[in-house]
Design a protein around this nucleic acid. Structure first.
Length: 263
DNA sequence: CGTGGCTCCTGGCGGC
DNA sequence: TGCCGCCAGGAGCCAC
């Protein structure tokens, strides 16, 4: 579930809590979430070093170390970061626990273990290897329009495809399409230029609102789809019962009244 | 190129 | 009450 706004929140959380202090211990409790690095190597590369700054691309968080390595975090569906001061406060599903010399801790907590952690030399090489598309927050309108050229898949699938656009997942793609009044199955080649511009503007607004609300610990406005994205939920505009369909194996919620199917 | 199906994982919930 | 089975979904893989 962590999509771009959540990962950006984790980034700011890490910036606030975990930079510029020496790592004392690294406890890998579930080595199966490590990718292309084993736990001894991870331990060796982190201990006695410091995180200097972080970056984010799509749903990935990168933390730069003073030895020129990057710790790469992907939160899967249930992953999050938890910073705490007393060792008996460690969360229930901490897969990796980083202890700092100042006796504080940063845990990668992830009940479902869909998260992934790697250690890489170069961030851009990692992004290339993963074939990630441009970041949904950074992308400009021109490049965004280009994503839709010579494609014909369903718009929801395109928005969620990390190889095309990085950062948007199932939940926020539903929100964006709801606000743009587009049926999630609409083939992208059927969208007019103006409509694609709308999607772009709405995408930016939705991501910004979600981030602001996350940072302030506030819920999304009731006028959004997401708070109503539950069984028997109703459209905040038309009061119609929301419908669900499977698209690319994901459950899409949409309003059959506001988001008409393309003819 | 596109889509659909399966897999990984486990807490939570509906149904019997 | 207790247990079975399904669902949630990010991403990778494979078949067509």
């Amino acid at each position: 579930m962590p999509e771009l706004p959540e990962v950006e929140s984790f980034k700011r959380y890490m910036d606030k809590t975990s930079l510029n202090k020496t790592i004392k211990s690294v406890e890998v409790k579930n080595p199966e979430i490590l990718q292309k690095v084993d736990k001894h190597d991870l331990k060796n590369k982190l201990e006695e070093h410091q995180f200097q700054y972080t970056r984010r691309h799509g749903k990935y968080l990168f933390a730069y170390l003073d030895n020129d390595y990057w710790l790469v975090l992907h939160f899967g569906m249930t992953g999050k970061l938890i910073y705490f001061k007393d060792s008996d406060q460690s969360p229930l599903y901490d897969r990796i626990l980083i202890g700092f010399k100042d006796k504080t801790f940063l845990a990668f907590d992830d009940p479902r273990k869909f998260g992934k952690i790697s250690l890489v030399n170069k961030m851009d090489v990692f992004i290339k290897e993963k074939k990630l598309g441009p970041d949904a927050w950074e992308i400009g309108l021109k490049s965004f329009k280009n994503l839709f050229k010579s494609r014909k898949g369903a718009i929801k699938t395109v928005l969620m495809n990390q190889h095309i656009l990085a950062g948007v997942g199932n939940i926020y793609s539903d929100e964006i399409l709801f606000q743009a009044c587009i049926h999630p199955k609409t083939p992208v080649n059927k969208l007019k230029n103006k409509k694609i511009e709308d999607v772009y503007t709405i995408m930016k607004e939705v991501l910004k609102t979600a981030l602001d609300r996350n940072m302030a610990n506030q819920k999304l406005p009731e006028s959004f789809l997401i708070p109503n994205r539950v069984e028997n939920g109703k459209c905040p505009n038309s009061d119609t019962k929301l419908e669900t369909i499977k698209i690319s194996g994901r459950t899409a919620y949409y309003c059959p009244e506001c988001q008409k199917e393309p003819i």
